[in-house]
């Protein structure tokens, strides 16, 4: 069941579009912000709210990569793997994270703390290599500074 707050947020989003389904992405992201990911149940609730079928919504949801259809950890670390960061050694940072937290790209640490995902260029190429944890961007990351950064997210 959508909570009252969730429903209110969705109703707000829908107002921006002449057609309810225009708010599909807003709705998915809104619910995901609150619940961490989009479960089948969440999907159904949103679909009902938007008056479309689950198939229709999931067809959209699975197209995008920021909609999580699987559970994620308490924090999500997005490692930019695009060219500028690659030149500046993002692969080495990734390896360091793997070593420190025993987690591969696309996985969540066993304590459920951190999910590690690749992401396309974060628009921080001037400060490459860059990463984003939850909504915070970190630039000029090196294998030496990474632990200090990640440790802020418990």
């Amino acid at each position: 069941m959508l909570s009252d707050t969730e429903r209110r947020e969705l109703e707000e989003a829908v107002k921006h579009y002449p057609d309810k389904r225009g708010a599909a992405i807003d709705a998915l992201l809104t619910i995901q912000r609150r619940r961490g990911w989009i479960s089948d149940d969440s999907l159904l609730e949103i679909a009902q709210f938007l008056e479309i079928t689950v198939e229709e919504l999931d067809s959209v949801a699975t197209f995008y990569n920021l909609v999580f259809r699987k559970p994620v950890g308490r924090h999500v670390a997005f490692m930019c793997d695009s060219i500028s960061c690659w030149i500046k050694g993002c692969e080495r940072v990734q390896e360091q994270i793997k070593k420190l937290y025993d987690v591969e790209l696309g996985q969540t640490t066993s304590d459920g703390r951190l999910t590690l995902l690749p992401i396309a260029c974060l628009g921080q190429c001037g400060r490459a290599p860059a990463m984003m944890i939850d909504q915070d961007v970190h630039g000029d990351v090196t294998p030496d500074t990474i632990e200090q950064i990640v440790e802020k997210y418990k």
Binding site: T53, V54, E55, E56, D58, S59, T62, F63, Y64
Partner: peptide, 18 residues
């Protein structure tokens, strides 16, 4: 019909039901 759709993107596309 509404219970058949395409899911995913790039070369990971799936045509089927939910």
């Amino acid at each position: 019909g509404r219970d058949l759709n395409v899911f995913g993107s790039h070369d990971a596309l799936y045509f089927g039901r939910e």
